[in-house]
Design a protein around this nucleic acid. Sequence first.
DNA 1: ATGAGTTACTATGAATTTAGTAGTTAGTCA
DNA 2: TGACTAACTACTAAATTCATAGTAACTCAT
Lengths: 156, 156
Amino acid sequence: MNLVVSHYQKDIDMKKLSNQPCLIARSLALVGDAWSMLIMRDAHAGLTRFDDFRKSLGIAPTMLTGRLSALTEEGLLEKRRYSDRPPRDEYVLTEAGRDFLPVLFAIGAWGRKHRGGGEVTRFFDAETGTEIDPVTIDRATGAPIGTRPIRIVAPE
Amino acid sequence: MNLVVSHYQKDIDMKKLSNQPCLIARSLALVGDAWSMLIMRDAHAGLTRFDDFRKSLGIAPTMLTGRLSALTEEGLLEKRRYSDRPPRDEYVLTEAGRDFLPVLFAIGAWGRKHRGGGEVTRFFDAETGTEIDPVTIDRATGAPIGTRPIRIVAPE
DNA sequence: ATGAGTTACTATGAATTTAGTAGTTAGTCA
DNA sequence: TGACTAACTACTAAATTCATAGTAACTCAT
């Protein structure tokens, strides 16, 4: 099996991550840190305001400012004014941000299997009431990812 | 000695996350950084050896040592001796490590939709030859994550 | 009208982590 | 003996992260 990664050996760093042919690497350039992912989680849970994120995460305000700006700049969140006097902005999910939810559930599913136990937050389908059990499948074959051999094709 | 100290600090730091009731947070305590995820990606692509990871990622050896030990300690990789003279070890995926593949594909799928374009690495089903199109669904309802309302239940 | 409270930040400096390069260990091979 | 390989460790500098304090622009109660 050939390598997924680029063949340059020297100039791979985090800044160049977003130019790599591997879409995993590209995505990780934006959300490849725990704070960003946890902000996305909280945003999906309904949080929108600076102080709500800060209190929920216990993150330093400088960090939060940086992460929110980055996620906004990258189009996962959108800054929206909710008060003119005093001027106040909140951060709401964009479509790209909402599309990130499957990633969070895939991570959570891994955690349930391999880091479960004790008190855990659980997710239920609001209509059927059944607990959500996320599986990532290939839409083409319907097979869960990892159950069938895969061929990796790098460009050029 | 530097490494030992930094490992200790990281463990303290991670204990904040790994004891949380949210399984996403718990998981991110282990793999919530880009290097760890990229190592997991490369491991799935077939890399096993220190120098292969190092060359593929352009990561500093100190970083790589730290990340490989952490992933090994957390049970996503396993150290295996492949030569006694000279003594040489390689890192192979455990079951927990293999179970991480859906997370990587979910991230890749997000990237394809929102950071696609240009030259990208692609994945095909080795048997059918069709390109893999990962979707994360709820096994109970069959509905893609994000298409139905969810109820979050935190422990008391 | 003054002072307390709210919200979304910035400023600052110390602690910690990361990056980059060089060197070490334990060998093999010619 | 000397060159070479693989898997690291040592060291230092640069960058990032953390924690705390402070600020801007208001509102509201006394």
